[in-house]
Design a protein around this nucleic acid. Structure first.
Length: 468
RNA sequence: GGCGCAUUCGUCUAGGGGUCCAGGACGCCGCCCUCUCACGGCGGUAACACGGGUUCAAAUCCCGUAUGCGCUACCA
C-alpha cells in the first residue's frame, strides 16, 4: 500500500492541504504502507520554489512525515512527453491545432448565446504536421465511467459529457491530468486521497489509467473544509495557512489533532489524542461525506488543552520565539510557564502573560479598574506597609510562608486576607487577575516583590486621590 | 445552465431499522471550588432540511423537493 500527498507549490500550505496530508499519512501508517511527497509544479506560471520549500517546512513543523520524496514533477517532464506520445501512437490521444485564441472566441460566443460550450473534438481525425504548434488531447471514450470511492461509494460519470482534455500543452509541458496519472502509475500509488474538488477530475484520470493499461488505484475524496460562511475556507473568513497558525502560537500537535477531527472521529467520544493514537484508529473509509466548517474557537480551546498538558520543558522550544529579546533561558522561565500554561490558549498569550515578570519593577502599569476596586478602605497605606514588613521578615520566602505571614497580619488587623491579597496582586502584576499571588511573589523573588510593593505604596496618594 | 456531491444542536461530531422524546465536544448561561484569573466539577441551552413511501417500527432504507457546495481552463 502506498499513498501520497501531492501539493502544487502555488502558495503556503493550506489547512485543507494539511488535513489531506494528515489523512494520507494516517492511512499509510495504519496499514503499514508508505507515504510519498510529490511536488506538482508543472504550472511554471504559478509554481515557485520558495513555496515548495515553505510547504515542506510546514509539513515538518506539523510532524507530517513521508517515506519517499519530495519528488518534483518538473524533474520528470521528459517522462510525461514520452507517455503522451505513446497515447498518440496508439490512437488514444491526438494532436490538436486549435489555438487558445480560437477556443477562447468560441467560448465567448457560446456564452453570449447563453449556451454551454464544449470542445468540439474537431482535431480528432486531423492529420497535420507534428511540427506545427499543437497540444495533445486525450480522446475521451463514450460511455459510463464508473469508479469506487472509499468515502462516497460508487460514483459514475457520462463519458460523453467530458471534453477531450489537454494532456500536453503547446509548450510541451504536461497538464495536471497527465502528470498525476503518469506519476501515480510509475510510483505505484495504490490509494489516492485528495480534496473533494477533484471528484469531477477523477473520471478523466480513470480513463487515463485504463488507456495506459495500468490498474486504477482506490480513490477517497475528502470533504472540503469550509469557512464560517460555509464556503471553501478563504482569507476572508480567517487564517488559511498552517504558517499563520504557527505565528498565532498554536502548537503543531494541537493543529494536527484538530485537523484530524475535521471530517473524522475515532468514536467513543475521544477528542484529544496523539498522532500515534490516531494512526492506530484511522481509516479513510471512516471519513465523513459532508464538508466541515473550520471553528477557530475550538482550535483555541484544543491548543489550551495541549499547553496545559505539556511540561514547561516541552513548551519552551515552541514558546522561545514568542518571548522576544533578550533571549530567556529555560531555567529562568520554567516556573513561569508552569504557573501560566493553563491560563493561556496560545503561545502568544502565554508570552504576553510572562511579560509581567520581565517588566521593569519601576514601570508597572496599574489597571484603572482594579485600582478603583481594590485600593480603598481605611488605613490602607499603613496596612500595606505592615504587609511589606511582614513579607520582608519572612524567611525562607516561600509560597506557604509568605501566605502564612499575610494571613497572620490580616487576623491581627481584623481584616480579611482578601483585603491584603488584592492590593498585593495589583502591586506585583498591575492587574486584577493573575495566578495565585504567593506563587507569583515567589517566582518574582523576594527582592523584586518587595520593590514592587513599595512602589505601589509610594504611589498610593496619587492613585486614590482624584479617582481618575 | 450542465454534471457531480452533500444535508444530525450555532459549530465539530456519535449514531448504519427498535436500546434515541438522539450521546459527546466547542461556544453560551447558571452553580460549585476559590485570594482574582484560569483549570476542574455539576447543571442548563440547542439538532435528525422538507414531503412522500417501505416497515409492526426510520435519524437510520427508497424516491422526490429544497438548500448548499464543488467542477465545468493549454490551474491544480
Amino acid at each position: 500500500m502506498k499513498l501520497r500527498f501531492a501539493p502544487s507549490p502555488t502558495g503556503f500550505l493550506h489547512v485543507g492541504g494539511a488535513r489531506t496530508a494528515i489523512f494520507n499519512l494516517l492511512h499509510a501508517r495504519r496499514y503499514g504502507g508508505t507515504m510519498l511527497l510529490r511536488i506538482e509544479d508543472t504550472d511554471v506560471e504559478r509554481s515557485r520554489q520558495r513555496h515548495a520549500e515553505q510547504i515542506v517546512s510546514s509539513l515538518q513543523w506539523l510532524g507530517i512525515g513521508w517515506d519517499e520524496g519530495p519528488i518534483y514533477q518538473s524533474d520528470r517532464l521528459d517522462r510525461y512527453r514520452v507517455r503522451a506520445r505513446e497515447l498518440v501512437d496508439t490512437g488514444k490521444a491526438y494532436r490538436c491545432y486549435c489555438t487558445v485564441e480560437e477556443l477562447e472566441a468560441e467560448r465567448a460566443e457560446a456564452e453570449r448565446a447563453g449556451k454551454q460550450w464544449h470542445y468540439s473534438g474537431r482535431c480528432r481525425n486531423l492529420t497535420a504536421s507534428p511540427d506545427d504548434p499543437h497540444v495533445i488531447r486525450f480522446a475521451v471514450p463514450a460511455g459510463v465511467i464508473e469508479f469506487h470511492d472509499l468515502i462516497r461509494g460508487d460514483v459514475q460519470f457520462e463519458g460523453e459529457l467530458i471534453d477531450d482534455f489537454v494532456l500536453l500543452r503547446s509548450d510541451g509541458n504536461p497538464t495536471y491530468h497527465l502528470s498525476v496519472v503518469v506519476d501515480d502509475i510509475d510510483m505505484e500509488i495504490t490509494h489516492v486521497a485528495r480534496g473533494d474538488d477533484h471528484l469531477s477530475n477523477t473520471p478523466k484520470h480513470v480513463v487515463l489509467f485504463r488507456a495506459f493499461g495500468a490498474p486504477v488505484p482506490s480513490f477517497a475524496h475528502l470533504p472540503l473544509i469550509l469557512g464560517s460562511d460555509k464556503k471553501r475556507l478563504s482569507k476572508r473568513t480567517g487564517a488559511t495557512s498552517a504558517e499563520e497558525y504557527r505565528e498565532m502560537g498554536i502548537v503543531p500537535e494541537a493543529l494536527f489533532n484538530f485537523l484530524t477531527l475535521l471530517g473524522w472521529s475515532p468514536g467513543e467520544n475521544r477528542e484529544i489524542f496523539t498522532r500515534d493514537d490516531s494512526a492506530h484508529w484511522f481509516d479513510l473509509a471512516g471519513v465523513n461525506k459532508a464538508p466541515a466548517v473550520f471553528d477557530p474557537e475550538k482550535l483555541l480551546w484544543m491548543n489550551g488543552q495541549y499547553l496545559m498538558r505539556m511540561s514547561a520543558d516541552e513548551i519552551y522550544p515552541h514558546l522561545a520565539p514568542f518571548l522576544g529579546e533578550p533571549p530567556h533561558r529555560l531555567d529562568d522561565v520554567r516556573a513561569m510557564i508552569e504557573l501560566h500554561k493553563m491560563r493561556a490558549r496560545t503561545l502568544r498569550e502565554l508570552a504576553e502573560q510572562l511579560a509581567t515578570y520581565f517588566a521593569d519593577d519601576d514601570a508597572i502599569a496599574y489597571d484603572p479598574e482594579t485600582v478603583k476596586k481594590h485600593l480603598k478602605g481605611e488605613n490602607l497605606a499603613p496596612r500595606l506597609r505592615a504587609l511589606h514588613d511582614a513579607l520582608a521578615a519572612t524567611e525562607p520566602f516561600e509560597i506557604t510562608t509568605s501566605e502564612a505571614a499575610l494571613r497572620r497580619l490580616g487576623e491581627a488587623e481584623g481584616v480579611s486576607a482578601a483585603k491584603l491579597i488584592h492590593p498585593l496582586r495589583l502591586a506585583l502584576t498591575g492587574k486584577g487577575a493573575s495566578p495565585p499571588i504567593f506563587d507569583v511573589a515567589v517566582v518574582l523573588g523576594k527582592e523584586r516583590a518587595l520593590k514592587r510593593l513599595r512602589r505601589l505604596i509610594e504611589r498610593l496618594p496619587e492613585l486614590t486621590s482624584s479617582g481618575v
